[in-house]
Computed example of a mutant assay.
Amino acid sequence: MDIIRAILPIILFIGLFWFILIRPQQKRQKQVTEMQNNLQKGDEIITIGGLHATVHALDEGTIVLEVNEGQKLTYDRSSIREKKG
């Protein structure tokens, strides 16, 4: 019985920590991954580094972005932070 009283606060702390910090982060990561997988040509995006561009072409793990008229850059899909609009 004394062992349960000693371990219970630790278990409660771990559970609270999971619900407050870990679970919301996992949900956010799932949303970002889903957005990255659903990108299409013509979508306006923002990269992790803050580059604003338009999707020009897509491949399995990479994405070609058009920055200015005619300037194209190749990035990993995982470097896309958000889709504008």
Rank of each mutant, 00 (worst) to 15 (best):
M1E: 14
I7W: 13
I7S: 14
I10C: 02
I10M: 06
F13A: 15
I14W: 13
F19K: 14
F19A: 11
I20M: 14
I22P: 01
Q26E: 12
Q26L: 15
Q26N: 13
K27T: 09
K27M: 05
K27L: 10
K27D: 08
R28G: 00
K30P: 00
K30F: 08
V32R: 12
Q36A: 03
Q36P: 03
N37V: 00
N37M: 06
N38P: 01
K41D: 06
D43A: 05
E44S: 09
E44Q: 12
I45H: 00
I45V: 15
I46Y: 02
T47M: 08
G50V: 07
G50S: 07
G50I: 07
L51Q: 07
H52I: 10
H52G: 03
A53W: 01
T54R: 11
V55S: 02
H56G: 07
A57V: 02
L58I: 05
D59H: 04
E60I: 05
G61K: 13
G61A: 09
G61Y: 05
T62M: 08
I63T: 02
I63Q: 00
V64E: 06
L65S: 01
V67M: 11
E69Y: 08
E69W: 03
G70F: 09
L73K: 12
L73C: 04
T74V: 14
Y75K: 04
D76C: 05
S78L: 11
S79H: 07
S79L: 10
I80V: 15
E82N: 08
K84E: 08
G85W: 06
